[in-house]
Design a protein around this nucleic acid. Structure first.
Lengths: 212, 212
DNA sequence: AGCAAACGATACAGGTCTGTATCGATGAAC
DNA sequence: GTTCATCGATACAGACCTGTATCGTTTGCT
């Protein structure tokens, strides 16, 4: 292995073991054995184990969000369909045999204090994913893209949590059906704004679901 | 402290620390210091740390499901309202200052192998909660109580996961509004078709969804 | 009161953890 | 081919982990 690849290889190995066994349960000795490097090498790339965790989460954060973007954008050009396609991406992730739950939720679950850097990294990932949902909801011309994004996000998290226990893709498919049902009741401004008048009274039908 | 109370006190202390710091991060030494007992005493009540974890989860499982039952059944007699009241119970749990996420999800997140006794205990709790949802959905005369229970369960899990990051009750209120919206589209067989018109406004009070 | 079981306190065993120190080998750049 | 940072291997430090052994004291029960 080329030396320039070692850091990435360490992060990949770390992510695999964190996913399999968790963060506390994954020791440095196991990690270097699996990666096939010396302990000296590991600590030359990362000062502490926490630094390794943070770097691994950062890597996975960028990877997974980029993968989701590519998956969604290659599937369809329709913004509404793209919002639904995020569930298909999630289902593919969950159906992976190596799936053991969201590693960011696990990271937050093992580092529960809000000021913990690991917790903050996990929290940041969730915010960025939510921002992408909002971006899609906005492109799909939903009247309240933020609320739509929150709903999609909640369905994603619920499906992921349940799939972590059942180890099947069914909860994700169910969450997509729920999303379809919910989004069908939501107000969208038409793609030709000139054809419509002021979109003010459209809000009335949407306010059923959302009190706040 | 009376000797008959020691075991329960140990379990309560363990649950508090597991909730605060997680399972691996909670050491035996810290536990006995917090509980104010000797290490000998702990190991006289529980053979291993895993046994302690399993006993603690079992205790919390029974406690929390009993609490939910009491909360829900004292709030209303209408089965449909009871299904929605589970979200109010969840919101109360989440708004607790000590809330750090579902301890059963955390347990499964730190013991990821499906054959791990801790994972199985967490999984069992989730199945029992789901069974209660189905019981409520059946009483509410939904045509497909199993699917309704799955939907409610998914909303619960999603709200809990997001609340674990945001540390607010808002995701739970949102999930309740989503439940209201979804359940309104579901088919229910009427219990007394003639008397139904009189008790019709029970449905109206359901729109308190995001009230608190 | 007396007795057996459970308690607290503490020392300790054996393992594992993170992180460092040492040193010979390797490999890329010049 | 020489140089020098990086590598592998390994020993080690110091802390923490679970679990046990020992022993004097206390408690609950008869």
């Amino acid at each position: 292995m080329r030396r320039s690849e070692i850091r990435g290889h360490l992060l990949d190995t770390a992510l695999r073991l964190f996913n399999l066994h968790g963060y506390h349960a994954t020791g440095i000795d196991l990690l270097i054995a699996e990666a096939g490097v010396a302990k000296t090498t590991l600590y030359r790339h990362f000062e502490t184990k926490e630094d390794l965790i943070l770097a691994a989460l950062e890597r996975r954060d960028e990877e997974s969000r980029a993968e989701m973007r590519i998956f969604v954008e290659q599937r369809t050009n329709d913004p509404y369909e793209r919002l639904l396609a995020t569930f298909d991406f999630l289902e593919a992730s969950v159906r992976d045999k190596q799936f053991r739950g969201c590693i960011f939720m696990s990271a937050a679950g093992e580092h529960k204090e809000a000021v913990d850097p690991v917790f903050r990294a996990a929290s940041m990932h969730k915010r960025l994913v939510l921002a992408y949902f909002e971006e899609l909801a906005h492109a799909a011309r939903f009247a309240e893209p933020k609320r739509i994004a929150d709903a999609v996000n909640l369905l994603h998290e619920g499906a992921t949590a349940i799939a972590q226990m059942t180890r099947t893709g069914e909860p994700v498919r169910q969450s997509k059906r729920m999303a379809v049902s919910l989004l069908a009741q939501e107000v969208r401004s038409s793609s030709e704004p000139s054809a419509r008048t002021e979109s003010g009274e459209q809000r009335a039908t949407a306010s059923n679901a959302g009190g706040a």
